[in-house]
Each structure stands twice: as structure tokens, then as C-alpha cells.
């Protein structure tokens, strides 16, 4: 496995900001004293006059971003997912989403793979929280390439965007030819017995689960659901119809995230079993990221088990 290139999605975010900065000067980047960690520091180094540090004041930063967007300009704001979505929830709801202002929130350090910092910094609720707000778009890229493409798409989007990036270096799945469109799922492997719908770093695990299942004679479809809102309803419903069973995989609470979004849709339209893999209503704890993914059962083997459970539930 030593030949697999691993890069954190937050790195893709920081690089994309610099690339965008070279192309256009009509946007501002802000951070709340975490520029080195969120990778907005790359932009700060390249364009010091176009970067503003808000200090440790995420609520203020969100409403400031709303004010900037209200003058017709674009703005990226970054913090850890916990503080962006949690502490500043109401500012995002009332200052940004209600007026539908095109603020792009680059929330890094999402999920359990934050690692050693432990539970206070391991945000497992952000997708759920953000998903409840009208006008919000949520993107959770699977690798650094997709992260970059998502940034390019977000700056052109006419409304607020919440982008979730990870701290942990994860395998690069895509190459530069990868096509990303907001709201469009990508089928990475096709199959007919079950569909695995994954997001973020679980996409790579889902591809590995495909191989495990294949070895056992099970044919799985693998969908990368980078955009969690708006959900690609068609991709989900076609999968429900074609394969009759779905597994969702996310590095997030099973309450309110991708699994919930898929379940809500499937229950309404084409009820088939949806088995969710995620974190089951627990806080995280300290440890190396990789060990935590093992400890919380967020691995290809766990997806494969859930896939078999989903198939068993088929009528």
C-alpha cells in the first residue's frame, strides 16, 4: 500500500484558494485564528492583503462574512467544523442562509479523524446541523482532488455553501480529469446486489468494501455522495430500484447525516432497507486518527458487514 498517495482534503482546500486567488481578486478569505490548521494560511502567505483574521470569534466572523457577501463580494470563512457549525450555528442560519448570501464556509477537522485532540474537537454533528437550514448546500469531498474541484464550484454557486474537510491524510482517489458538479453523485463502481452510498473519507473505504464483497460473490454499486444537500435524489432512487438495498457510510453521527438524508428520501419514495454506518450517538475520544477509525468501526470491513445485513433485509 506504500504507493498510495495520501493527502488531507484540507490541503486541497488551501491549495485551491491560492489557485483561485491567482485567477481572481474579487473575494476575501477569513479565518478565526486557525489559519495554519485550516490551510487558509496558504492563501494568507500568497495574498496577505486579501486575508483577514477575525481572531477567536467565530460568530462574529460568520456575520461579517454575511455583510461582505451583502455588498456583492465573495468570501471564504474557515474554522474547525465544530466551531463553524456549532458555535456559529445561529449566525449561519440568520445572517447567511436566511438572506441566501453566497458565503462559503470551509470547515476543516470534521469527524473523528481529528485524532488526538479528542471529543471537544471531533465534530460528528455538523452535517446534521447544517442540513436543517434552508438554502444551505453541503459538500463533503472524498479526497484532495475533489476538495479542489468543490472549491471552484462553490465560488460560482449563488448561495451559501458548507464544505467539510478533514485533517487526516486520506488516499487520493481521483485524478485531474474528475468531473465535479454540486448536487451530482458519482457512481464509482457498478453492481446489482446492494448500493454503498459513501461520503468523505468513507468513499475510499467503500471502494475497498466493493473488493471485499466481490471476493464473496456479492456485486455492489458504490456511489460517492460528495454533495449531501441538495442530495442527488435520482442517484439514490435509481440505486434503490436497481439494487433493492442500501448501505450509507459516513464519518459522522448516524443521526441527521448522509444516512438520515438517504433514509428520509427512500422511505418517502421507494422503501428498501437502508443500513447506516457511522458513529452511533457517541462522543469521540483521543487517539491516532487511523486507530480511531478502527475503534469506531469506520472501515471497509464494517461496510461489507453492513452490506450483507442490508441484503439480508431485502424482502
Amino acid at each position: 500500500m506504500s504507493d498510495v498517495k495520501t493527502v488531507a482534503t484540507r490541503v486541497g482546500y488551501g491549495e485551491a484558494l491560492v489557485e483561485l486567488g491567482n485567477k481572481r481578486d474579487d473575494f476575501i478569505v477569513m479565518d478565526a485564528d486557525l489559519a495554519a490548521a485550516t490551510q487558509t494560511g496558504k492563501f494568507k502567505d500568497a495574498f496577505p492583503d486579501r486575508f483577514y483574521n477575525c481572531g477567536i470569534a467565530e460568530q462574529n466572523m460568520m456575520s461579517i462574512a454575511a455583510g461582505i457577501a451583502a455588498t456583492g463580494k465573495r468570501v471564504f470563512v474557515s474554522s474547525f467544523a465544530m466551531f463553524a457549525s456549532g458555535r456559529a450555528f445561529e449566525q449561519i442560519r440568520n445572517s447567511i442562509c436566511y438572506p441566501k448570501l453566497p458565503v462559503i464556509i470551509g470547515a476543516t477537522h470534521g469527524g473523528i479523524s481529528v485524532g488526538e485532540d479528542g471529543a471537544t474537537h471531533q465534530c460528528l454533528e455538523d452535517i446534521a446541523i447544517m442540513r436543517t437550514i434552508p438554502n444551505m448546500t453541503i459538500i463533503n469531498p472524498a479526497d484532495a482532488i475533489e476538495a479542489k474541484k468543490a472549491v471552484y464550484a462553490a465560488i460560482k454557486h449563488d448561495g451559501p455553501v458548507y464544505m467539510r474537510f478533514g485533517r487526516y491524510a486520506v488516499p487520493v482517489i481521483f485524478d485531474d480529469s474528475y468531473y465535479f458538479k454540486i448536487g451530482k453523485a458519482n457512481i464509482l463502481r457498478d453492481g446489482e446486489d446492494v448500493t454503498i452510498i459513501a461520503t468523505g473519507l468513507m468513499v475510499d473505504e467503500a471502494i475497498k468494501a466493493y473488493d471485499i464483497l466481490k471476493g464473496e460473490g456479492i456485486s455492489a454499486r458504490v456511489i460517492n455522495m460528495a454533495t449531501i444537500k441538495p442530495l442527488d435524489n435520482e442517484a439514490v432512487l435509481v440505486a434503490a430500484k436497481d439494487t433493492g438495498a442500501i448501505v450509507t457510510a459516513e464519518e459522522h453521527s448516524v443521526i441527521g447525516g448522509l444516512g438520515s438524508a438517504v433514509s428520509e428520501l427512500v422511505c418517502d419514495k421507494i422503501p428498501v432497507p437502508v443500513v447506516k454506518l457511522g458513529v452511533y450517538d457517541k462522543f469521540g475520544f483521543s487517539g491516532p486518527a487511523g486507530d480511531l477509525l478502527d475503534a469506531f468501526g469506520l472501515r471497509a470491513l464494517n461496510i461489507a458487514e453492513k452490506a450483507k445485513a442490508a441484503i439480508a433485509l431485502k424482502k
Binding site: Q59, N60, S63, I64, A66, G67, I68, A69, T71, Q91
Partner: peptide
């Protein structure tokens, strides 16, 4: 929140 938005406008 309004004063922060006003600050954002002034910054812009």
C-alpha cells in the same frame, strides 16, 4: 448579528 454584518460591509 447586525453590527457584525455592518462591520463586514465596512470591511468590504
Amino acid at each position: 448579528q447586525g453590527i457584525s454584518a455592518a462591520v463586514g460591509m465596512a470591511l468590504s
